[in-house]
């Protein structure tokens, strides 16, 4: 039945799995962007660079300190989050009173510095990062072999995404965050330390990027430029989904990853640009984005 499409099922499901993995990364990254944007009104152009830093922290932990994947999964997001706190407190904070575009330009400059610095030290070639022992091998599902690590990435990334959604939409802390996104001055007038919340939000958002970097390390090579092209696709994802809805960011990310995977099967030449084309179509039909509230 599957052969009706003229594509061997192995290839189809293989690409769909790859699409699902890419989609998980899109979801994690666009979720971080959306959380940061909601609170800071800043598009974090350094998001891709910090994703790369996450992968590098994992690689450095392994090669310099002999700390493996599971350590990295905890420590790298913390390190990236801490870096985010420093950047927010030291630099971004000074721009909240001027045009929001300056925040974009600042984070763009930071991205150039971070990526340029890593490229200067580590060169452009990628470093291999091994799959943790526990997740080697795969499971034969009958129609395809599912590599354990890839299955883990999808499940774990989705768990983190939905955990974040739950924390924001269903907890007390999340209600404070939503309120502060809506009207920070009033939330402050209730005795909540909004500047600290802003710092922590930025730290959390970029920690998600760092986490995505660790997850990506065993799949892709760890290289200084691994985040640059990825993040532009994520921007398109964000435009398509709109940043008003957390769930929307997650769903859009995964959906577009899958769509990209399908394109790789049926029309590989277009797979690089399919997300951008969809962005153009969405802009025509629903300018505010699929889940968007214009702001």
């Amino acid at each position: 039945m599957l052969d009706l499409l003229g594509v061997p099922p192995q290839a189809l499901f293989g690409q769909l799995l790859l699409g699902l993995i890419n989609g998980s990364f899109y979801a994690l990254l666009s979720l971080g962007l959306a959380v940061i944007f909601g609170m800071l009104n800043v598009i974090n152009m350094a998001h891709g660079a910090l994703y790369m830093v996450g992968a590098f922290v994992a690689w450095l932990l392994l090669t310099k300190f002999g700390l493996g994947y599971w350590w990295a999964l905890g420590l790298a997001p913390l390190a990236v989050g801490a870096l985010g706190l420093v950047l927010e407190r030291g630099l971004l904070r000074h721009l909240y009173s001027v045009d929001h575009l300056y925040g974009l330009l600042l984070t763009f400059g930071l991205a150039l510095m971070i990526e340029g610095g890593f490229r200067h030290v580590y060169g452009v070639s990628g470093q291999a990062y091994p799959i943790p022992d526990l997740l080697r091998g795969g499971t034969n599902l009958g129609f395809m072999v599912l590599p354990s690590y890839r299955g883990w990435v999808v499940v774990f990334a989705l768990a983190v995404c939905f955990g974040t959604w739950f924390a924001i939409e269903r907890t007390r802390l999340g209600s404070r965050l939503r309120a502060a996104t809506e009207n920070p001055a009033l939330v402050q007038a209730f005795g909540i330390d909004v500047p600290r919340m802003v710092s922590l939000t930025y730290g959390f958002g970029v920690a998600l990027a760092g986490l995505a970097g660790v997850l990506a390390a065993p799949i892709y090579q760890v290289s200084p430029m691994m985040g640059t092209n990825l993040i532009i696709v994520v921007f398109a994802v964000v435009v398509i989904g709109g940043m008003g809805s957390i769930l929307g960011a997650i769903l859009t990310g995964i959906g577009l990853g899958l769509l990209e995977g399908l394109t790789k099967v049926f029309y590989p030449e277009a797979s690089n640009i399919v997300v951008f084309v969809i962005m153009a179509v969405v802009l025509l039909l629903k300018p505010a984005g699929l889940f968007g509230r214009e702001r």
């Binding site: 630099l91 330009l105 600042l106 763009f108 400059g109 930071l110 991205a111 150039l112 510095m113 971070i114 990526e115 340029g116 610095g117 490229r119 200067h120």
Partner: peptide, 10 residues
Amino acid sequence: VTVVTGFIFV
């Protein structure tokens, strides 16, 4: 170069 460029941006 990119580090310097980024620094000038900042």
